[in-house]
Design a binder for these strands. Structure first.
Lengths: 182, 182
DNA sequence: TGCACATATGTGAGCTATCCTCTATGCATG
DNA sequence: CATGCATAGAGGATAGCTCACATATGTGCA
């Protein structure tokens, strides 16, 4: 439900077309948010209909026309309202843990394969997150406050922290299973 | 998409009605999976239609009729197929991190309130998980193997590990922000 | 006496998200 | 020369989920 708000947030930093938004989402906020292209376009239309964003038109030569979207004052107000509204954390739904829970039906080697596959996934994710470049806070890009920088870094660190926790849990779990089915 | 499989998994342990399933999901697997009642009934119907489960009828006095569902052989096969199939981890979507990412628009006290609210949520979740009773593996209930017990314990530990990681991250993040906006 | 809650199963409306497909064109790579 | 990728946007179908509501009865509490 808060793709709307994620988009408002990104647009509040810089006006963008749907196409750019897709790249921005995949890039900077990719590790805690994703969005389908069609859904981005649909959501942008909805935001415009509700007066939360406005749609511009930039005709380009040799390329499709661009439609940069800008947040309106109403949009900024809605963004701030959302940011300060009570958390409504949706229940977790982890298909991997569901498999672990029922995995005793599997032969031991398949259980190990399951954990190994998970380990590879998480290790790859961790490597990606750790590879994100974090510029020296002394020379920040224009328009980025120290606070904004710290918060975005914190969001990144959150992903890293959970990836490490998951790897540590995999270590412990594999050791425990090793004792039961050597 | 794998509510089907979660249900097959639970039914493979013990046949249950939709009503019991709801309680089982809220209870034992509640921390990594949840399901709406309507969705459980709909999914059960679908499973029966596909021949993966069969529906019984138990007329009770003074109470609505029970419809216990049992997994068929085809259902068990499908469950095992799913357990051993490649992981398709869906992209994460964390509305809280999205807020953190854009939170520099908020006054500092609102940022702290955001982190505090999250801390309370996670602390409550951790307390719940730690309160789950874990019987001595020496005297397991009938039908539960040591392996099955270890795996279910591991799933529980996963929740605990991530809750602790989140709390540690909150500590670090609050300290970092303290230095910027005292 | 009234109210809420537990037992038990469903239907219908509506929302969001994903997947697939379509439209156009330019540029690079093989 | 052909295939594929990047740019840019959008419609249609469908899956899955939530929320509200309907039905029917027994029990406990104030």
């Amino acid at each position: 439900m808060s793709l709307r708000h994620a988009i408002l947030g990104i647009l509040s930093i810089r006006p963008m077309s749907g196409y750019d938004l897709k790249k921005a989402v995949d890039g900077s906020v990719g590790h805690f948010w994703t969005a389908d292209r069609s859904q981005i376009y649909r959501t942008l239309s909805a935001l415009v209909d509700e007066g939360l964003a406005s749609r511009g038109t930039v005709v380009q030569e040799g390329r499709p026309t661009l439609h940069p979207h800008t947040v309106t004052d109403a949009g900024l107000a809605e963004l701030d309202r959302w940011l300060a509204s009570p958390l409504k954390t949706p229940p977790t739904r982890d298909a991997f843990l569901a498999r672990v829970f029922f995995a005793d039906r599997l032969p031991p080697e398949d259980i190990r394969a399951l954990l190994d596959a998970r380990r590879r996934e998480v290790a790859a994710e961790l490597a990606e997150l750790e590879a994100v470049e974090t510029p020296d806070p002394a020379d920040l890009p224009a328009g980025v406050t120290e606070l904004g920088y710290a918060l975005r870094l914190a969001a990144l660190d959150n992903g890293i922290a959970h990836a490490r926790a998951e790897l540590a849990w995999l270590d412990a779990t594999e050791r425990r299973l090793e004792r039961i089915t050597p």
